[in-house]
């Protein structure tokens, strides 16, 4: 990766976000994440239920989302809190996915702070439901990562607006 912080590309920023997600999951839950940048054939996209997203405010804003299946977010939060998965409330599941996206975006924010890609962050927003889809105009770049944690599934996306 270039040592010139001003020349960081979208792809390099995306790699930083992937590393940050692995670090957050490892630190907070002790779980190892496997990240694929191409959707694996058996990846259950239709089972995604909990999404957290944040707007990265800058000259060219972006939206970062982390989405998870119910079993994935329940398992991760169970490892984090020590509670049994079925003891976690719906509010905690929604809040948990928001905290993940908050920590990932926050970690990379500090690394890009003195570059032309520096950004501010809105508060995280939760969305629950299995039909959430972002639709962007032609030509806008999107990056997707398909994350497997303990056999369970999350998806992280970055939309360059």
């Amino acid at each position: 990766m270039s040592s010139d912080k001003n020349s960081i590309t979208n792809e390099q920023e995306w790699q930083m976000l992937g590393q940050a997600l692995s670090n957050v999951l490892q630190t907070m839950s002790g779980l190892e994440a496997e990240i694929a940048f191409v959707q694996p054939a058996d990846w259950p996209l239709n089972e995604i239920e909990f999404s957290g997203f944040m707007v990265m405010t800058r000259v060219r804003p972006s939206v970062l989302t982390i989405s998870a299946t119910r079993p994935a977010i329940m398992t991760i939060l169970s490892y984090m809190t020590g509670e049994m998965p079925d003891e976690l409330s719906e509010q905690e599941l929604n809040d948990g996915v928001c905290e993940l996206v908050n920590m990932v975006a926050g970690e990379v924010k500090s690394r890009l702070n003195d570059s032309e890609r520096a950004y501010g962050l809105t508060s995280p927003i939760a969305a629950q439901g299995s039909s959430l889809r972002f639709s962007l105009k032609n030509g806008l770049e999107t990056f997707d990562a398909f994350v497997t944690v303990d056999g369970l599934h999350l998806k992280m996306s970055l939309y360059m607006l």
Binding site: V24, T27, M28, N102, M103, G106, K109, S110
Partner: peptide, 24 residues
């Protein structure tokens, strides 16, 4: 989660004793 220098400086000036970054 906001561990950049600007926030750390503001926190220091406000009188924070210890600054910790998430994740933790």
């Amino acid at each position: 989660a906001m561990g950049d220098e600007q926030i750390m400086t503001e926190a220091n000036q406000a009188g924070v004793t210890v600054f910790l970054k998430k994740p933790f």
